[in-house]
């Protein structure tokens, strides 16, 4: 088999990360544990759920306008994992969870995740699909206005937003802030992160949403895969330093490896 021009090195890096991820996963299954940095936004989720329960208000969760079949799909998957954790906490504390979203393909997944969260906490009677799981629309600003309306009418005690966000991010964050909800948000779409930093109490910055997804599982094997991300960062850092050294010598490492 022949590589498409310029993709050989990228494939090798992908393979290295896959192998490392698999190795750390298996090592964790054998009992090896790796230290993980504390992520304040993740730790704040339980506090936010508790606050909502104390205030007698619901918890609102939304994923953003991204979808399940493009380059932002992994962010959506990370959002689903975080929602799963929130649903378990909602079941544990007897909280009312409202999950809003704009991807019709995700309806069965979200419904199952929320149902399972309440069920695993021994509170299946609290799950009401017509209330807990709300598919709104797949049109961006119709979705944005529907989420806004939900925030204003339901007055959630906690507003948690994790996934691929576009221009609607600030609309949600400012509305949530106005309603007095404790806000936790995260996205890997770098252009939207500043809006969340401005308007939210806790923020997952970039890759932290993927780490949060792993932490949400509570499974040491899944959490261990975060370590391969760190190795990937070291490789990226090394390539940047080598590129900087080679550039004055007239060698463009980026072009040499990837074009």
């Amino acid at each position: 088999m022949v590589f498409v021009a310029g993709k050989g090195v990228a494939f090798s890096l992908l393979l290295i990360l896959f192998v490392l991820g698999y190795y750390y996963m298996k090592a964790a299954e054998r009992g090896k544990r790796y230290p993980i940095r504390r992520i304040r936004a993740f730790e704040a989720i339980e506090e936010a759920v508790g606050r909502a329960v104390e205030m007698g208000r619901p918890i609102h969760f939304t994923f953003g306008y991204g979808n399940l079949y493009s380059s932002v799909a992994p962010q959506y998957v990370a959002g689903i994992a975080v929602l799963s954790y929130i649903a378990r906490l909602a079941g544990k504390y007897g909280a009312r969870l409202i999950a809003t979203f704009g991807v019709p393909e995700a309806i069965p997944i979200v419904e199952e995740i929320v149902r399972e969260g309440y069920r695993s906490a021994g509170r299946p009677e609290l799950f009401k699909p017509e209330d807990n799981v709300r598919y709104l629309t797949n049109m961006q600003f119709a979705y944005a206005s529907a989420v806004q309306a939900t925030l204003i009418r339901e007055r959630p005690g906690a507003n948690i937003m994790v996934g691929p966000f576009y221009a609607e991010s600030l609309i949600f964050a400012e509305t949530g802030s106005w309603t007095g909800a404790l806000q936790i948000a995260g996205t890997a779409r770098e252009t939207q992160i500043p809006f969340f930093v401005l308007a939210c109490d806790y923020v997952f910055i970039g890759e932290e949403i993927f780490a949060a997804a792993a932490l949400a599982s509570g499974d040491p094997a899944i959490i261990a895969t975060i370590r391969s991300q760190d190795i990937g960062k070291l490789i990226a850092l090394a390539l940047i330093v080598i590129g900087l050294i080679l550039l004055p010598l007239g060698v463009n490492l980026g072009k040499l490896l990837f074009i």
Partner: peptide, 20 residues
């Protein structure tokens, strides 16, 4: 960082280790 996170999420999905 986000790119690396996407790759590892892809690995977890391939291996069927995503939570949902």
């Amino acid at each position: 960082g986000a790119g690396l996170g996407i790759i590892i999420t892809g690995l977890r999905t391939i291996l069927g280790r995503e939570l949902y």
